[in-house]
Design a protein around this nucleic acid. Structure first.
Lengths: 217, 217
DNA sequence: GCTATCTGCTACATCACTGTTGCGGATAAA
DNA sequence: TTTATCCGCAACAGTGATGTAGCAGATAGC
């Protein structure tokens, strides 16, 4: 009985948020979690969940839509069409990593076709491709690189970085989005082999001011 | 009513194989597929599936165990402790990619703890780490590289490569395991930035004879 | 050919999850 | 204070999947 256009009362709006957060928490650890469990984790009755979301499917779709909306905004904030490619990549990556760590489930599987989330998803992918095209043009990527492979690898690195818990090296890299972004971009562009002097790293790029201390060389 | 120690009749053994293959096919596209659907895809009655596998859980675990067993064998075949690190990596990668493309579901999520599959999984990971340690020692990896990050990236690249359908560039890379392995290892070590002359690629390493034409420079 | 085994089929029992309804009490908003 | 809205609770219906049991016909293996 959700999706009514009427304005919600303040406490109801709070319930919706609490449910969404609890659902994310539960489903990210167990995608088969029950509405009952979600309700319990949110501290509300099961019927209240059904009051706000017509079905389990509707709940999941709402999560996906708002998560992808956040991602879209985060990418836009990096000015993907105007900022220098490397800068845009770094900034977008840092933003996205932060959001993705809070929406692990909602962003884990791509939304089913026909939903609003899919539209946003496609838009984000288009922006991603645009940045990569500009990077290729700027000589950051090897000519002839398969653009689909580049995007696949990039997205995979982001996912891995989100699940990358800190241990020995890169001590502060876990919670610092800029450090994670540097790790991702560096790995994407230069891999794990020993570095030879030559190309500029993100930090050396003019016009980018990052807090010092992230250079992991 | 499965897991009985008795020797199965030939036709029963065939049934088991057919069911496992059908289950892999179905579940890789829809992890929530029904026992009914699996049975139908295998061309047997639902009760027959239950006759061979006590429960859905048991079926999935059997799949995981045999899949990971194949992976383990494939890694061993690359002689991870004795072959030159780069050779071992390439060979193991090529072998694993082939197997993984046939066990997408069974190898998709790591097996639940306490199962036989977990034991094999851990053994494989140990071998993986060993190869990476040898690679680091041999100067293939940058000193100070977080070993967990290296493994994460490597495994992610394998997963992506399996799902990497062919289009424009790398035309034959889709079905040729050696080409895919080259793509994975090159991306892992050197990334996507323009290559500068210097380190040897896999194909240039003495002692490795690969079919020509995989150099994607 | 004989026998143990395997299979399809039908029927049944159970269970978990989903989704709905209605009511009385609480609470936000005016 | 008044009122519309929200919530917890209890009860119920429907659905779909899982797992079991027994029987009659087919088939592999000796």
């Amino acid at each position: 009985m959700a999706t009514t256009g009427r304005r919600l009362r303040a406490d109801a709006e709070r319930s919706v948020r609490t449910i969404l957060e609890a659902a994310e928490r539960l489903l990210s650890e167990n995608p088969g979690a029950t509405m009952e469990q979600i309700a319990e984790a949110a501290g509300v009755a099961r019927t209240t969940v059904h009051r706000r979301f017509a079905s389990r499917e509707a709940l999941v779709e709402t999560m996906a839509t708002s998560a992808w909306q956040e991602i879209d905004d985060a990418v836009d904030a990096a000015r993907p069409y105007t900022a220098p490619p490397l800068v845009a990549m770094h900034q977008a990556t840092a933003n996205v990593v932060q959001i993705k760590s809070g929406w692990r489930f909602a962003l884990g599987t791509l939304p089913p076709p026909g939903e609003e989330a899919t539209r946003i998803h496609d838009a984000v992918m288009a922006k991603c491709d645009a940045v990569f095209a500009r990077a290729l043009e700027a000589g950051l990527l090897r000519p002839g690189t398969d653009p689909r492979w580049a995007r696949q690898v990039y997205l995979a690195l982001i996912s891995e970085a989100v699940h990358h818990s800190p241990t020995t090296a890169q001590p502060q890299a876990a919670d610092d989005p800029d450090a994670l972004a540097t790790l991702i971009i560096d790995t994407l562009l230069y891999g794990l082999a020993p570095r030879r002097p030559g190309p500029p790293a993100v930090q050396d790029t003019p016009g980018v001011d990052l807090p010092a201390g992230h250079d992991r060389s």
